[in-house]
Computed example of a mutant assay.
Amino acid sequence: MSDVLIGADALRHWLQGSQAPVVLDCRARLGDPEAGARLWRDGHVPASRHLDLDRDLASPAGVRGRHPLPEPGAFAATLRRLGVESGRAVVVYDDMGGQLAAARAWWMLSQWAGHPEVRVLDGGLPAWREAGGSLVEGEEAGIEPSDWAPTFDDGAWVEADEVFSSRAMKLDARSRARFRGESEPVDALAGHIPGARCRPSADNLDESGRFKSPAALREALPEASEVISYCGSGVTACHNILACAVADLPLPRLYVGSWSEWIRDPARPIATGDY
C-alpha cells in the first residue's frame, strides 16, 4: 500500500489506537454546494470532520475559475479550526474514489500546505462500509483547535500564463468526450488546451473504486520531465497528481484555474478532437 493511501481495515485499527489521525470527510457534489455538509450529517466515519469543497477547499468562483484556491490565511484558519496540526496524521476520504474531493484535500494539505503525513482512504466511504465500518450521524462534537501555521508552497501550482508559455506536458483529467469537445455539461465552451493529453481521473481506479496498483499506474500514466495537471476546475486534476504519488512518479504541478479559467480569456487557444 502506498504511503499516500490507507485501506479501510487499517484505518479502523488506527482509529482505535492512542494516536488516531484527524479524519476529514470531503464528499461533494458539483453544482450542489450544500451536498457535502448534508452527506456528512446523514452518516460519516466516526470522529470525522466535514471539510467543504466550496467553502474550505476553494474561494468563490469568478475570473480565476470555479474552484480557485482560498487565501493561504483562510485555509490555515480552516485547518486550525478542524484541529489539524503537523504532528498528527490526517486521513481524507470521499465516496468517489478520491475524485470528489479527497484528492483535492490531499493535494492542498500535503503539497501546498506542507503537512508531512496525509493519506487518502482507498475506495472511500464504500470501502469503509464494505469492511464493516460503522457510520455516525449528526453535527460535529467539540473539536479542540490547533495552532498550526503552515508554510505554503506556491511552486506546487501554476497560473494560466505559465500554462500558455510552458513546454510542460498538459494532462487533462476530464472525460474523453469533454476533452474532445463532443460535450460540455459544465463550462461555457468545449474542448481542451492545445497539446494536452487526456487522462480521465476515473482511469486511475479499478472496478471496485480503489486505485490500481503502482505498477499499472506507472505503465499507463504518460511520462514527461515536467507535467501540468488540469481538469474543469482544479479538483479532479488532483486525482492524477495523487495517482503519480501512488505510482512513485514525479508529481505534476496543478493548474488550479483549469478549463473554467482558461476559457474566460478569448485570446487563449482552444483545441478539439484527440490532440
Rank of each mutant, 00 (worst) to 15 (best):
G7M: 02
A8G: 07
L24G: 08
A28V: 14
R29F: 11
E34G: 14
W40Q: 07
R41N: 02
G43P: 04
H44I: 08
H44Y: 10
P46H: 05
P46Y: 02
S59T: 09
V63T: 15
R66M: 11
H67N: 08
P70D: 04
P72V: 06
F75K: 12
T78Q: 09
L82M: 08
E85N: 06
S86L: 10
G87C: 09
V90N: 11
V91D: 09
V92I: 10
Y93N: 06
G98W: 05
L100I: 15
L100P: 03
R104Y: 12
W107N: 07
W107R: 07
D122T: 11
D122H: 00
L125G: 08
L135V: 10
L135K: 05
V136L: 11
E137V: 15
E139T: 10
G142I: 14
E144Q: 15
S146A: 11
S146M: 10
S146D: 10
F152Q: 03
W157E: 07
E159I: 00
A160E: 12
A160T: 06
D161K: 03
F164P: 00
S165Y: 00
M169N: 01
R176H: 08
R178N: 04
R178I: 10
F179M: 03
F179K: 00
P185E: 10
A190I: 04
H192W: 09
A196Q: 02
C198R: 01
C198N: 15
R199G: 09
R199N: 13
P200C: 13
L205C: 07
A215V: 13
L217H: 05
P222N: 01
A224D: 15
V227K: 00
I228Y: 11
S229P: 14
G232F: 06
A243T: 07
C244V: 03
V246W: 03
A247T: 02
P252L: 00
R253Y: 00
Y255T: 02
S260G: 04
W262L: 01
W262Q: 04
I263W: 09
D265T: 14
P266K: 04
A267Y: 01
R268G: 00
P269G: 01
I270G: 02
Y275S: 14
